[in-house]
Design a protein around this nucleic acid. Structure first.
Length: 193
DNA sequence: CCCTGATTCGC
DNA sequence: GCGAATCAGG
């Protein structure tokens, strides 16, 4: 694949939107994220908003270092973009630790305790239920950075475990649970009873 | 280990 | 110009 005009355009657009190189590569197809990054650099559009690791790399004494063409260019770019990207708003995260005063919540399903306004997409819920069957049911100690931390069951019971499935990168939950934890923004629509 | 972007350099 | 390999941070 080559960098046609519109492919470059897509690249610029997505990069500008803060999409990751891999996502862009995936979107474009036929190229790897490296290719995308390389292109980004050649195009001059590099630093954007805060993206994980940006503008930190410095001199790297690689083994092959032998190019005397290295020359520092005091050409600073006063370009400064505010770049304030709004991310998705998180809905009510599930609460698992309840002292269980007098009445323990039904539990079993990770339905958020918030009584008001909480109509999670039936699809999302269905998926969650499916996933829970395949859940690894790990304990608190088994939780790692990439294990879904969605609690299932009653903490006061032996029937309590965490999903444990691979998280959806960055998020604390697996794909399915992210689906119910982070609602796009509209999940409740007046139910006509 | 997963991901991210940055850089180098042979092509 | 291109991008795999490599590096470096999270």
């Amino acid at each position: 694949m080559s960098w046609t005009d519109d492919r470059v355009e897509t690249l610029k657009k997505m990069w500008g939107e803060g999409q990751s190189a891999s996502q862009i590569a995936k979107e474009l197809g036929g190229v790897t994220r490296n290719a995308v990054i390389g292109k980004v650099h050649r195009l001059g559009l590099s630093n954007r908003a805060t993206s994980g690791t940006a503008a930190k790399a410095e001199a790297k004494p690689k083994a092959k270092a032998a190019a005397p063409k290295a020359a520092a260019k005091p050409k600073a770019a006063p370009e400064e973009k505010p770049a304030v990207i709004m991310q998705t708003q998180a809905a009510a995260p599930p609460k698992s630790t309840l002292p269980a005063r007098k009445q323990i919540i039904p539990a079993g399903q990770p339905l958020p305790p918030q009584p008001s306004a909480n109509e999670i997409s039936p699809e999302a819920l269905a998926k969650v239920n499916e996933v829970e069957k395949k859940a690894k049911k790990i304990g608190l100690m088994e939780l790692t950075e990439r294990t879904c931390k969605w609690p299932v069951g009653d903490p006061a019971t032996e029937d309590f475990w965490f999903c444990g499935l691979p998280v959806k990168q960055g998020k604390p939950y697996c794909e399915a649970h992210v689906g119910v934890a982070f609602q796009p923004m509209s999940s409740r629509r007046d139910r006509r009873r």
